[in-house]
Design a protein around this nucleic acid. Structure first.
Lengths: 210, 210
DNA sequence: AAATAAACTAAACAAACGTTTGATTTAATC
DNA sequence: GATTAAATCAAACGTTTGTTTAGTTTATTT
């Protein structure tokens, strides 16, 4: 055997938790896919919930770190990155991350689950991943945001961009139904360019007067 | 008893399904909240899945129709609605719909669940609600979109707006963590104005050249 | 008022659930 | 190579699951 049982359980668990949610998956289904005994989950992770948290601690956090690493690396290559470059890099690093299509989707599905219905895993992910990244990203984008905004209002602009990325990633069935297009690589490219266009104009504009 | 058992089951079911998902709720939990016998679900809806679909057929679809009705009513009051008016009305009708805070959140959570992981309920909701509304909305917004876009590209602009609305509605915990603000009515108002500002500029801008 | 249908209920069903146990195999240490 | 520790296993545990059954109550019809 090449991989350890613990790793194979984590592999199976994050796939299945992402697809069906915590309650939608049984420990037996996980261990069957991992090719091990049912009791292995309790031996290695205590209980089912412990396994779910381990997925976030040992897989989600690390993968998010890599996504962000790829983002900053590409940003630092630019001598003076403008807003367009920043947004495109952001969209690309989320929609075309250095992982397989499958792994990226899995990752975002789990984030979406915790976003819509936070459990203990939310705090892990938020403090280790979301918060530091947002702070840095806000600092980077600040020069290109409309003037006279509070720190909290500035955040909304970044969240508007992220929300599009998340939605275009997750609402595939809806997108396919509406546009009639398959969700392949060229289509994703066009999505990225749309997000760049929409968001760049969105944050560069003046404030609307009520 | 004022309401029928069937209605009370539907009430309890949509609350619990929205909050915990199909697999996260037991029939016993639903019937306990509805104050009736466990077997009542099977009597009225056949089985658990039938109850879930009934929630979409008899509750979700009708509520969505009311939201859209409120949208069109407000739009038709304007002699010549411009893009800003359209977007604000759209954001308002989703974030401040003619329902209680609780009911609106419940509604959007169920949509999000079906968006991220479509079941049979997706087809019901898509064909009855999403598709007709999108078509009409696209027609209404078309004059204000950048020129020379395909029908499919135009759709992405509408989806970008909707995605923000959905995300600001669902990612409350994240928003509260990031901004430190409570998710109350004044905050929602500021979210609406942000979406209007960001989206209006977003779709009025020129196309970015690659 | 008798007869028929609809609505509801208590009790039980088999199946699936997460977890525990105790034994066995594999790996590491001495 | 014996001893100890870690890992894995088959089997069973007590609950909870969705659903069914058979009986009772309530409402409608004739």
């Amino acid at each position: 055997m090449e991989t350890t049982t613990k790793d194979r359980i984590l592999d199976a668990a994050e796939e299945l938790f992402a697809e069906k949610g915590f309650d939608g998956v049984s420990v037996r289904e996980i261990t069957a896919r991992a090719g091990c005994n049912v009791a292995a989950v309790n031996y290695h992770f205590g209980n089912k919930k412990g396994l779910y948290l381990a997925v976030f601690r040992e897989r989600m956090a690390e993968r998010a770190r890599k996504v962000q690493e790829a983002f900053w690396k590409e940003i630092e290559n630019e001598s003076e990155p403008d807003a367009e470059k920043i947004i495109r890099t952001l969209a690309r690093s989320f929609l075309k991350s250095p992982f397989s299509e499958k792994e990226r989707l899995l990752h975002h599905k789990l984030i979406a689950r915790e976003t819509n219905r936070p459990t203990e895993a939310f705090e892990i992910f938020y403090s280790e991943v979301v918060n530091p990244f947002f702070s840095a990203l806000l600092k980077l984008l600040a020069p290109y945001l409309p003037e006279g905004l509070s720190e909290q209002e500035k955040m909304l602009y970044v969240i508007s961009i992220i929300s599009q990325v998340m939605h275009f990633n997750l609402a595939r069935t809806m997108l396919t139904h509406l546009t009639g297009k398959r969700f392949d690589s060229p289509f994703i490219d066009s999505l990225i360019e749309h997000i760049v266009s929409f968001s760049l104009n969105g944050l560069s504009g003046r404030i609307i007067k009520k």
